[in-house]
Structures are given as C-alpha cells and as structure tokens.
C-alpha cells in the first residue's frame, strides 16, 4: 500500500506526518521524494546500506558532422542550445534530456552521454526502510531521481510505503503520486493554506486518487482549511494541534511518536484510518 503525503507549499508538515506515520507502523518503507531538499533522514538518522548514482542522457556534439543548420536550436523548447558562427553550444544544466536534438539533427551529429544529476540512498532505521533521493544543486529536474526511487520493488503487500512528496503540485509531485493508492493532503489553518490546499486538491482530483486531509497547526477558533474541507465534502483524517511541545520535539529532529503517547495515539489512529480508507476504496472499485 502506497500512501503519498503532499501539500501545496513547503513547511506545512509533510515530513512530520510522513516520518511519524512510517514510525507507528509495525514495519514500513519511507521514501523521501523531496529530492531538492530531502530532510526525512534528519529524523530517522538511518544506517546507509547502499547508494546509487542517477544519471540522465545529454547530447554531445560531433563538430565534424555539424553543418550549422540550426534545427536543434530551433527545436529545443528549453533553450539548452545556442548557435554562434554555425557552432552549437550546449548548456548541460538547462537540458531536460528529451533527446529531441538527437532526433531532429539531419547529420546525426549528436550522440548521447550520461550525466550524473544526483543519487539515491537506501538505509534502515529500526523497522523502517528508508529511501532518500538527492538531486544535485542546479539540475533542471528531479523527476529521474523520483522515478528511480519509486521503481524499487518495495514490498507493498504487508507494509505501508509512505511517500514524502516535494511541495507544490508540479511535475515532480505528479511523478511522486502517480502510483499511490492514497493521498494525504496536509494543510495549514490560514487563507494562504487554503489556497495551497486547493492546488493539491485539484491535482489529486485530476489524478482520481482517493484522498483525505490532515489539518496541521490547528488553533482554537475558525480554521479556514477545515471550512474548505467541509464545503467540498473532503474527508478530514486528523487534527494536529499548534503545540509548542510538538514543535520543539520536531525542531530538534526527534520522531515525535517516540517521545509522546499523545502523538503516538494520534498518528496510530491516522494510519489505521488511512488503511481502512484504502481497503474501502478497494472494495468499492472491485
């Protein structure tokens, strides 16, 4: 069972929810798809068991074959190629590895070479298997790393796989939730929070994913994100209070459920709810 945790912006509580869900399960897999700034490892402090490089294909020009026809430059929608004095210039870090220039070149002047863009680490911390994707700074996209992370044959039958997504609702998030069985949207109790919640709400609706919302940083009084959920008839899975004790534990990179019975109960019941939701979904669709 793959559970993706996402939110419209950073700092909402994706990693808090993901790390604690993974920890309350008897055994689980945690996958950090926030490859631009993976921070789940700060909490798990895993023993690294394996590491592999992730590379993409980028074009390499054979200047002897190039006639300067410019088709490659005109084709590249990412502006990764320029041409001066009939000589193409390739900007590796702007290239999105689409392979288009290689295809359109009538002289077959391009070949493809591997370029490392980051790595994937596999580790273990207690009963949690931990996969972390790390994108090198300045690279165009983390998608190849995320697809590499999720292509691992994690055992999904008897243990939950928690996917800690990147913030937002762009391509890298789509890649992260593509194969998820359930999506958990984490939201803040502000109007800005509602705006961001709406972005991921639209995304999971578009992807026809079953989902529910975790309201984080809840205060007394009106919660605009909660009102949004009620209005849209969205399932609310849990309320996490705006609590200094929780904030302190979390800011010191502690896994909250290991230090507090109250939060252990909260996250256990959240996990149970999600598992029930996924089971219901499976029955409805079978």
């Amino acid at each position: 069972m793959k559970i993706a945790v996402l939110s419209g912006k950073g700092g909402t509580g994706k990693t808090l929810v993901s790390v604690n869900l993974a920890t309350v399960a008897k055994s689980s897999t945690y996958i950090d798809c926030d490859v631009e700034e993976p921070n789940g490892h700060l909490f798990f402090k895993p023993t690294i068991l394996a590491e592999k490089d992730v590379s993409v294909k980028i074009p390499k020009l054979n200047p002897k074959l190039c006639t300067g026809c410019r088709r490659c430059v005109d084709f590249c929608k990412f502006n990764a190629l320029a041409i001066i004095n009939n000589k193409p210039i390739i900007f590796d870090e702007v290239c999105h590895s689409c392979g288009g220039c290689v295809l359109v070149c009538p002289e077959k002047a391009f070949s493809e070479i591997d370029k490392s863009i980051g790595k994937v680490q596999m580790g273990k911390s207690g009963n949690v298997d931990i996969y972390t994707g790390i994108l090198n700074i300045g690279e165009a996209t983390g998608i190849p790393i995320i697809s590499n992370l999720l292509s691992n044959k994690q055992d999904t039958l008897d243990k939950p796989v928690i996917i800690d997504c990147p913030p937002g609702s762009s391509c890298i998030v789509m890649e992260s939730i593509k194969d998820a069985d359930y999506c958990v949207l984490v939201a803040e109790p502000t109007l800005f929070g509602v705006h961001n919640l709406n972005m991921v709400y639209e995304l999971v609706t578009l992807f026809k994913k079953p989902f529910g919302v975790v309201l984080n940083k809840c205060l007394d009084g009106d919660n605009p994100a909660e009102l949004f959920c009620i209005e849209k008839n969205i399932k609310i899975l849990a309320h996490i209070p705006f609590d200094p004790e929780l904030g302190k534990l979390n800011s010191e990179a502690n896994i909250v459920v290991k230090h507090s019975d109250k939060y252990h109960n909260l996250f256990s019941s959240l996990l149970e709810k999600i598992i029930t939701e996924v089971a219901n979904e499976a029955t409805t669709n079978s």
Binding site: V73, N79, A80, L81, A82, I83, I84, F91, V94
Partner: peptide, 14 residues
Amino acid sequence: NPGGAGIKAAQTIA
C-alpha cells in the same frame, strides 16, 4: 520562456 531565457535572448542579440 520558463527556462533558458538568457540563452535565447543572447541568441537574438547575436
């Protein structure tokens, strides 16, 4: 353009 605007603009200059 979402990216590489400087490269393309420089191409226009050239």
